[in-house]
Design a protein around this nucleic acid. Structure first.
Lengths: 123, 123
DNA sequence: ACGATATTTCACGTAATCTCGAATTAGGCC
DNA sequence: GGCCTAATTCGAGATTACGTGAAATATCGT
């Protein structure tokens, strides 16, 4: 996962309603839940729910499929995996600083890797 | 880490300048960097930098200490650990769904194997 | 076709976020 | 004290995010 995708995922999860929503879908499993059930469980207006659902879909964190009359949303576990991997690799320092339960034996690319760090100062 | 702290951390990291900033401090190590060096490396105006630094401090992701004339900022690795733990526990489904690098027993294929499921070796 | 249900789209108001430049505080040195 | 540098605070402007309610779209059942 590259930086842009990580930023999209982080931004999508950095809002309480969406974090609750994603956690609900994660616990719901791969079958997912219809929008109506989600709205009822979270207590949000349908139009607000669509707003947040679209945000999560755009970030690739959930998927949408239609089942007859209802739209089913389900967590996309792979994207969450990718975000965790990105954060672990890029934002966790070297050595076993992060995820000590994991004890990753190798592969910490030292230094900044895939992004150009400098942005020209505009004015 | 409880939800409120996780939201603060996610919100702090969901902005490009702040993500770059945090990554820079992570690679800089526990000694940290003075604000001036950070501003120069990222190409950000001083007032904007303070805005983002404060945001990260409020989220507990970095710390501030004064060294004579300059203010040194350093990554707070523990908070990042806590965020990763929170996401792994609350947003990753059951058991071995997330952090496959930690759990090589990948007995779960719900069809979303299109995205990078394991840590993509970059470079 | 008609009605009912499920969900989205649209328009609008408000609040939050981000950037910028000028002014200000803090500390060190002559 | 006066001066310089480091960094922050302040105030204003532009942009974006969020919540709400009314209207529109899609699908199913009769």
């Amino acid at each position: 996962m590259e930086k842009k995708a990580a930023l999209d995922a982080l931004s999508a999860l950095s809002q309480e309603t969406r974090l609750d929503l994603f956690r609900l879908l994660v616990t719901a499993g791969p079958e997912g839940l219809p929008a109506g059930v989600i709205a009822e469980r979270l207590g949000v207006l349908p139009s607000s729910l669509t707003f947040h659902l679209n945000h999560l879909v755009r970030a690739g964190l959930i998927t949408q499929r239609r089942l007859s009359r209802q739209l089913i949303y389900a967590a996309e576990y792979g994207t969450m995996n990718g975000l965790l991997a990105y954060l672990t690799e890029n934002c966790c320092g070297r050595d076993a600083l992060c995820n000590p339960a994991c004890n990753p034996s190798d592969a910490f690319t030292t230094g900044e890797s895939d992004e150009a760090p400098a942005r020209a100062r505009q004015r």
